[in-house]
Design a protein around this nucleic acid. Structure first.
Lengths: 81, 81
DNA sequence: ATTGAGTGTTGCGTTAACATAGCAATTTGC
DNA sequence: GCAAATTGCTATGTTAACGCAACACTCAAT
């Protein structure tokens, strides 16, 4: 069991106008931890993933996935906004 | 950051007619690990949570939640089946 | 009566998800 | 110009999520 997990933390964070420190404070972790997650250096615990999704007000699957996320430009071009 | 995470693994597993070994094999972990999760002895990684939800064909939030799940009898009584 | 499947639990070892500190590079505001 | 905020990266330490082995218990089937 070792699968790659893709995430859109940076995208949701930028959209919400939050810095890493802001998000880190909101979920109660170290700011570096957010950086490690965004870069894919390591995978979050379920607890942290649920907390992050909660802050953004979306489901876990919208932020984390085994499948790579399409680029924002691709997705908007499809009219799914 | 340390919140309790409730889960309905046992319920979904029973509904699917799977033993712990079956589920463990399906997601690629040790059978004891499933037992530990069901009892709440420890919380799963996001990777494991996504895999389990994938096996059951439901979203992560339907299996894992910060809020306790209502009993099955309660939920069926509400007519939400 | 006994075999096997499912489960509950304990113990020990490994690994990775965290915390924390530190420093350089870049950007933004004053 | 300088200072503060944000980010990128490295290093070290702790803790908990795992793997794995072992054993007891219950229950269904033969």
């Amino acid at each position: 069991m070792s699968r790659v997990i893709h995430n859109r933390i940076a995208m949701f964070r930028a959209d919400a106008g939050l810095s890493r420190r802001d998000l880190a404070d909101a979920v109660g972790v170290n700011p570096q931890t957010i950086g490690f997650l965004e870069r894919g250096d390591y995978k979050p615990s379920l607890e942290l993933a649920l907390s992050i999704a909660e802050v953004f007000g979306v489901s876990v699957e919208l932020v984390f996935s085994f499948e790579p996320f399409p680029s924002l430009s691709q997705q908007l071009a499809k009219g799914r906004e």
